[in-house]
């Protein structure tokens, strides 16, 4: 076995599964991520352009009397993710501002593809009603058909296209 600075992946998988189980047991719902960004987008747009938000069939679902998009489960969970990630990085001595990329490509190229990937993930997560954590992982745990479809299409597409993107990674 190669020496590793990371946790054993099987142990990490079981621990992550127990965190997910804890979310189900306490809150009756699973993990997520893109929903927290959606709440932030809704808040921003409804602050900057309240009339536009009120007239939009998308934003108006989340705003109005007694609704505050930032007081959501996923927003608080993601704040926790930032704290947890920071603690882990601090303990492991991995806190460092850097652009990580395959040495064969420039940092700028990495950032351009990161931006494109983020845009696609943002758009796709709204269309697909959740991202890898909210739809695929949580969905599979509750045996939801949608979770299995998300997992298969997401990983399947990435595998199918890996050849065309190989110069970015290997």
């Amino acid at each position: 076995m190669m020496k590793t600075k990371y946790m054993n992946p099987y142990l990490a998988g079981v621990l992550l599964g127990l965190v997910l189980l804890m979310a189900f047991f306490f809150s009756g719902r699973g993990l997520g991520a893109s929903g927290a960004v959606k709440s932030t987008v809704v808040s921003l747009v409804s602050t900057i352009a309240p009339e536009h938000a009120a007239n939009s069939p998308f934003y108006s679902k989340y705003i109005g009397e007694g609704k505050s998009p930032m007081k959501s489960w996923l927003v608080f969970e993601i704040l926790g993710v930032l704290v947890g990630g920071f603690l882990s990085g601090a303990l492991a001595g991995r806190l460092k501002l850097k652009i990580e990329h395959f040495p064969g490509i420039s940092a700028n190229r990495r950032l351009i593809f990161a931006m494109i990937g983020g845009i696609l993930f943002g758009f796709g997560s709204q269309l697909g009603r959740g991202c890898a954590s909210g739809s695929a992982l949580t969905g599979m745990a509750v045996l939801s058909l949608s979770g299995f479809i998300s997992m298969a299409t997401m990983f399947g597409t990435a595998f199918a296209l890996a050849y065309f993107f190989r110069k970015n990674w290997i």
């Binding site: 593809f113 990937g117 991202c131």
Partner: peptide, 27 residues
């Protein structure tokens, strides 16, 4: 269709939204 778009996003960006927050946390 959402899953396919996210798959292209995954191979382009190398992250999914959840893990990107843990990566942001370490800089």
């Amino acid at each position: 269709v959402g899953g396919i778009i996210m798959g292209i996003g995954f191979i382009s960006g190398g992250f999914c939204p959840g893990v990107s927050f843990s990566a942001i946390a370490i800089g």
